[in-house]
Structures are given as structure tokens and as C-alpha cells.
Amino acid sequence: MAGEILDNKGRGEAGWQWPAIHPEGRKFGLIALAVSLFFLLVAGWDIIGWPLLLLSLGVFAFFRDPERVVPQTENAIVSPADGQVTQIAEVEPPLELQIEDGSGFAGLARGPVTRVSIFMSVFDVHINRAPVGGTVRRVVYIPGRFLSADLDKASEENERQHILVERSDGLKLGFTQIAGLVARRIVPFVKPGDMVAKGQRIGLIRFGSRVDVYLPAGTDPKVMIGQTVIAGETVLAELGETGLIEGIAQ
């Protein structure tokens, strides 16, 4: 199915399939599996072996990497992460995405923008994807603490990685991968100068975390607090579109 064009008029084919396991996670799953088999088949310690076997299956599931159907509407900004929208707030973008960095490429403009925060639990897919297509202008890693990722101050105090993408029309969009209470490593797949397509895999965060997206000025989100979003598929916003969207939890 990868690379196949599908649409809302019936073009294309779809069917359920087992999701692939990302190579970054295979070694962890195989190590857990080997240890569990040692306790089950060699040591004969079932009380330890069976829980470890379940743990190894959980590790493989954590690093699952399913295919996604990415909307190709030009002005659509797609979610970079699976999870729940936990915060929507007007904030200043991080300084690392604004200040001159010596690359010759300008950062985000100063002034408040809408930040959409997506919290990923350990049960969500943790492969992150590009919200828009374009050229990666910045990848800025900042070491920090490991507070719970759903806290507002996690955006400024936790280990995090800022990414800035510039579209071919010059529009820039920044987003931030934030490590959480359990997450201990942010793994990038891209570097400055790389070209990325909308919905392309750009990195992952191990074991629970959060992604913040800074929408361009004059753009409101099309998602609501508490909504579950899917990386590469859910449209977070349409460039230049504003307006209140309300929902009812039920």
C-alpha cells in the first residue's frame, strides 16, 4: 500500500495488515524476548519468564510502524503524532526556533501563535511525522529534565528537540518533540537540509512523550481539547483558516 494513491471517490484498495516494527525497536524487543526464553527454557523460572515474554511483546507493539494515508491538500497541516490533544494555547514560539542560528535561514517570526500539544501514552504509535512538506531548516536538541509530558512547563524544562520546516512557498512551521516521565531518548531521522514530504517519518520518542506544533499566525486548529489524533492523517489545521470549533464529550 505504501506510495499508493487513494481518494474519497473509491480509488485504491485497502485491507488490514500487521504493522511493521521499526528497526529502532527490533533490538529492544529481541533482547527482551531472548531473556524471557532463557528464563522459560533454560532456567525454568516460569514466574519470571512469562511476564518477560509479555513484556517483549509489548516492546514490539510499542515500536509498531503502520502505514498512514496522508491528505495531500496543499494547505492542510497534519498531526505529527498519535495521541490526545491535551493543550491548545497562545504562546511565543521557542527562542531556538526564532533567533538567528548562523545558517542564513530566518526562523519563526516573533509574536504569539497557537500551540497544539499532543500527548502520547505508552500505548500510542511513537513514530513522528512531518506536519508539512518542505526543507528541514533546523533540528535543535536541548537536554533537560523528565517531568510528566502533560505538564505545561515540560515545553521549557524537559529534554526536547525543535524542528523547523520551510515549505516551497516560504511558509515556516515549527514543532517540538518532548521527552516525558518515562521517555528517555529522542531519535531523529532527519537533519538540516533534508527535504521531507508531508506525513514523512521524521523521528520517534521512546516510551511516552509529547509533541508541540506551532501553527502559523492567522491559523486556528481544526482539533479540540481531548480529541484523539493520528500522525500523518488527522488534519490539525488549514492554513489561513480561523474560527471556533466546539465538541461534546460523550
Rank of each mutant, 00 (worst) to 15 (best):
M1T: 12
A2P: 11
G3E: 11
E4Q: 11
I5D: 13
K9N: 14
G10Y: 05
R11H: 13
R11D: 09
G15S: 14
G15Q: 10
W18A: 15
W18T: 14
I21F: 09
P23I: 08
K27R: 15
F28Q: 15
G29W: 04
L30G: 05
I31Y: 13
L33V: 11
A34H: 11
A34I: 12
F38N: 06
V42L: 12
A43K: 10
W45V: 13
I48Y: 04
W50A: 13
L55R: 06
S56F: 08
V59P: 01
V59M: 04
F60R: 00
F60V: 07
F60P: 06
A61R: 15
F62D: 03
D65T: 07
P66Y: 06
P66T: 07
V69M: 13
T73Q: 13
T73R: 14
N75M: 10
A76P: 01
I77R: 01
V78S: 04
S79T: 07
A81T: 00
T86Q: 10
A89T: 14
E90W: 11
V91E: 06
P93R: 03
G102K: 06
S103E: 05
G104Q: 07
G104C: 08
F105A: 15
F105C: 12
A106K: 11
G107C: 06
L108D: 00
G111F: 05
G111V: 08
T114S: 12
R115D: 03
V116P: 01
F119Y: 12
M120G: 06
S121G: 10
V122R: 08
F123C: 12
D124W: 03
V136P: 02
R137T: 09
R138K: 08
R145V: 14
K153R: 15
K153I: 15
K153Q: 15
S155M: 08
E157N: 11
N158H: 07
E159D: 14
Q161V: 09
Q161E: 15
H162R: 10
I163E: 00
V165Q: 00
G170R: 03
L171H: 05
L171C: 05
K172V: 02
F175T: 01
F175K: 00
I178K: 07
A179D: 03
V182R: 06
I186N: 02
V187Y: 06
V190I: 14
P192V: 01
D194N: 15
K198S: 05
G199L: 03
R201E: 15
L204E: 00
I205W: 02
R206P: 01
F207H: 04
S209L: 00
R210V: 01
V211L: 07
D212R: 04
P216N: 09
A217I: 13
T219N: 02
P221G: 05
V223F: 06
V223D: 02
M224E: 09
Q227A: 10
Q227G: 04
T228M: 12
I230C: 10
I230N: 02
E233A: 06
L239I: 09
I245A: 11
G247A: 09
A249Y: 14
Q250S: 13
